[in-house]
Design a protein around this nucleic acid. Structure first.
Lengths: 248, 248
DNA sequence: CTGCTTTTATTGGTCAGACCACTGGATTGA
DNA sequence: TCAATCCAGTGGTCTGACCAATAAAAGCAG
């Protein structure tokens, strides 16, 4: 990735690199802001902006009157720190596995209010407005996640959706694929809802997996941009590799 | 959570709240830094610090010479934005489901180098040094995630580990539980490794689930702090609710 | 000497005002 | 008409100062 033109951004990268390299270790105190600023040849406000960025990423922690402490040596690969390409297929593959489990759990924990909410979202999903339809789609999956009552699961599902928005490649492919005959997804969502209504975990898991499998299939057969074709080739090779062993 | 004493932090919360409330919509440009500073009665440097925090969280985007644009109306619940308590049991429940699937997939994609790496980590896991042992533990799970070759899965597993570190409650409970007879985890990890060696997805899934199930069981029977007892009660009620329906 | 209170040096937090650098549209001139 | 130029607006950076929290040193009462 090309270095951002903004100084505080490059500074943050630079300091992060130093920490990752072990120049400053976890638990240790960094030099004072004034010293760091001079070390890097920048003003203190700019240095502070870089530190705040690193603090948001959870790498350091500034304590008033005490100093700046390293809390993590390596940045976790989260949506916030996301900086490289994750393919569209990778994302959906992950969602297929994880959201399948989330649906299974939700089948056991969902209540009537949430079922009604899902029913309402199904109606909006066919909205002529592209954005409304997409929001309804995300809403459906988030309600399922929320129905598990497990904050970690909610955070994970949301994070996966977030990764999609962060990755230009994945976003382009996925939003382009929308519209072009992806509308049968309403039927698939209905199947998921039915399984949840029946409180049948296995059926819910299968319905969710089927749904996302269809999305993958759809992407495999659509032919549009060059980027998509590359992604398709990559995905086919990958699926072949997996199939070489045994079905998951 | 008590509002952070730092002004730029409160400012960021305040602006984030305005955006979430729809005061500024996605795609729109918000007022200039100078205007925002005056609006909130703070100096421009402080205002900028708040904006940089929001930018790191992916809510806004500042473009030189143009202005500041809203990119997301709602902050995703990720490790970086994490600000409330997620119980230790929630975390492990999520890991049990997700990492189980990751292990299943990894069984089909893992290569010999990664298998050797896992073997090496097993040796370190019994290290007398608590921290070393914990690092080996995390390392093991991360190698399994990495073996899937799926960036989204890697990011997810890492994010779950991150959530644990962010949640004081979960961290306290989990690190306290370590040591006190949790060492049989080496046997459990060996089982996971065996299933991966055999490239047997079902066995890998089961071994990973068993492992994390044991961790849950261990926490349920340990009796120590008050926080842990509350968490236990919460978890028992939750598991009863789930069992009321059917096994997942 | 002990133990509490006060002072002080250090460090992050905030402020003020200025100037630089980038952007897009308005202005100008061929 | 259209391309080059200019210019107003906006984020980016700098300087230097003062405020506020912290811990350790200094002072003091017992």
């Amino acid at each position: 990735m090309a270095p951002s033109g903004k100084l505080y951004r490059r500074l943050a990268d630079s300091i992060a690199a130093e920490i990752e390299a072990g120049r400053y270790k976890v638990g240790e105190r960094l030099p004072t802001e004034r010293e760091l600023a001079e070390l890097h040849g920048v003003s203190r406000p700019t240095l502070r902006e870089a530190l705040i960025a690193l603090e948001m990423l959870g790498m350091i922690e500034a304590r008033h009157g005490l100093g700046i402490y390293v809390t993590r040596a390596q940045l976790p690969v989260t949506a916030a720190t996301y900086d490289f390409e994750i393919g569209a297929f990778e994302l959906i593959e992950a969602r297929r596995l994880f959201e399948g489990e989330a649906a299974a759990l939700a089948a056991a924990t969902i209540d009537d209010d949430q079922l009604a909410e899902l029913e309402g979202l199904l109606g909006l999903m066919a909205d002529e407005d592209e954005l409304k339809g997409e929001e309804a789609d995300k809403g459906f999956h988030m309600v399922v996640a929320r129905a598990t009552g497990n904050g970690a699961i909610i955070a994970t599902v949301e994070n996966l959706w977030e990764l999609r928005n962060r990755s230009p490649l994945a976003r382009n492919i996925l939003t382009r694929a929308r519209g072009s005959g992806l509308t049968p997804r309403i039927i698939e969502h209905t199947k998921i809802l039915d399984a949840l209504k029946a409180h049948d975990p296995a059926a819910a898991r299968q319905a969710m997996r089927d749904h996302l499998e269809r999305v993958i299939e759809h992407l495999l057969h659509a032919t549009e941009t060059e980027a998509l074709e590359r992604a398709q080739a990559e995905s086919k090779a990958r699926r072949k590799q997996i199939a070489r062993r045994v079905a998951i």
